[in-house]
Every structure is written in structure tokens, then in C-alpha cells.
């Protein structure tokens, strides 16, 4: 392994300029009206996420949690290598459907975000957006070395190292890539956690929202979305 250049300093001064089309501007409509357009705010929500209370009755919450655990809808977003082991998971050999695990194509309906391996900065932005679009309670599972401590791309300029700095992670599964069996074992663990009422990632995200945002913005220079952006 080559040695690190001790004199190298990352450029911390240059700011990434905001895209032209995202800047607020005035537009004249065909009927002559002049309107203000703020692209960043027009399509998105500005309100930060809220901490949601559990049900008042414990028995109800327990029942809900049981249902949540037994109905895990995974978002079909393969962020990295790990996506390749998702397909065996949902097909005849491993058939995760029988454990109540299903695919969803849209983040709105999914409640489990699998970060399947390394996250490049570009994907991290999409993953954050996707996570924020999901509805709570929602869970994040990090797959493989890359999400734990950078994995094999520990020295890459374009991948993150610690996933929990950016998203509230409920469970990590070791492997490179974790096999489908390991994933299933992980899901069983996640189910246990949900049933016990410990999978409160969405609330954690809301509570430490500022911390998460600061971390996210520290690596994503081109932050072309509002802070909260479902």
C-alpha cells in the first residue's frame, strides 16, 4: 500500500455554485402575469420531520409492532454491489416473501431501506432523499463492510465510511457481500428489534435532525434540495 502524501490538503474553500435553474427567478406567464418561482421550495416540503409518539396503549403498540415486523416492505433501490444478492433473496431459492418481506418500487410505500454496500456521495444524496420520502416508522439496514467502516473503498474519495452519520441505521450485516442467508438472518434480527419496539430510527432522525443534516452537508457539496425534502 502506497503511503499517504502528508502534504495533501483538500480544497475546503471552493463552494459549489448553485445551479442556474434552481435559483429563484421571475417568470412571465403566457397571460402576462409575472410570478416568482423558487424551484427549491416549490416542489418540496420545508417542515422538518417530527418525533412521533407511540400509541398510548402498550398492547396496541405491541400489536402494531408485530405487524410492522411481519410486513417489511423493502425499497427496490440497489445502492451498491449488495443489490445483486437481493434478487436471489426474492426468488425461488430463498423466497423472502414467506417471511413477510416484499418489494416496493416507491419509497412512499416502503418502510425498509437497504443500503446495499458502499454509498458514493452522489448516491448518498439520493439515499437521503429516498429515506426522507419514506413514511415512519422506517428502518435502515446497512449491508456489508462498506457501510460499517468504508470497506474496501476506505481510501476512496467518493464513498462514505460510516453510514450512521448520515442515516439512522437499525442493523448492520457483515459480509462482502452478505449472502442471502445472512440477509435473512439479519431480517429476523430486525424483526425482533421491531417487535421489541426498539427500531425507532425515524424518531431518532427527527430528534437529531440538525446533526444529521450537518454531516450530510459536510460531504455533499451540491446540495440542490431543501433540508427536508419529501
Amino acid at each position: 500500500m502506497k503511503h499517504m502524501d502528508p502534504n495533501f490538503r483538500k480544497d475546503t474553500k471552493t463552494e459549489f455554485p448553485q445551479r442556474e435553474e434552481l435559483k429563484p427567478r421571475k417568470v412571465t406567464t403566457p397571460d402576462g402575469q409575472v410570478i416568482d418561482i423558487e424551484p427549491l421550495q416549490d416542489y418540496f416540503c420545508q417542515e422538518p420531520p417530527k418525533v412521533h409518539q407511540k400509541s398510548y396503549f402498550k398492547i396496541v403498540e405491541d400489536f402494531y409492532n408485530w405487524c410492522r415486523a411481519e410486513s417489511l416492505w423493502i425499497l427496490a433501490f440497489g445502492t451498491g454491489c449488495g443489490a445483486i444478492e437481493m434478487r436471489p433473496l426474492m426468488t425461488p431459492r430463498f423466497d423472502a416473501y414467506r417471511y413477510g418481506i416484499q418489494w416496493r418500487a416507491t419509497p412512499r410505500q416502503a418502510n425498509l431501506l437497504m443500503i446495499s454496500g458502499y454509498l458514493s456521495v452522489k448516491t448518498l444524496k439520493r439515499a437521503i432523499r429516498t429515506y426522507e420520502q419514506m413514511q415512519g416508522p422506517k428502518y435502515v439496514v446497512g449491508l456489508g463492510s462498506c457501510t460499517i467502516n468504508g470497506g474496501m473503498y476506505w481510501d476512496s474519495y467518493n464513498t462514505i465510511k460510516k453510514l450512521e452519520e448520515y442515516l439512522p441505521v437499525d442493523l448492520y450485516i457483515a459480509g462482502c457481500m452478505p449472502r442471502p442467508e445472512a440477509l435473512l438472518a439479519g431480517f429476523m434480527e430486525l424483526k425482533k428489534k421491531i417487535k421489541a419496539g426498539n427500531a425507532e430510527g425515524a424518531n431518532k432522525y427527527a430528534e437529531k435532525f440538525d446533526w444529521y443534516k450537518a454531516n450530510q452537508k459536510a460531504v455533499i457539496k451540491d446540495w440542490d434540495m431543501p433540508d427536508y425534502n419529501w
Binding site: 412521533h52 400489536f63 402494531y64 405487524c67 410486513s71 416484499q102 418502510n111 413514511q135 415512519g136 425515524a202
Partner: peptide, 15 residues
């Protein structure tokens, strides 16, 4: 499974 999914969706906290 359909029942669980239904209850799960009703039980979502944020909308």
C-alpha cells in the same frame, strides 16, 4: 399476509 400489510399500513405514524 394481506391482513398484516393492511394493519401495518394503517399503523404508519407519519403521513
Amino acid at each position: 399476509q394481506n391482513y398484516i400489510d393492511l394493519v401495518k399500513n394503517i399503523a404508519l405514524r407519519s403521513k
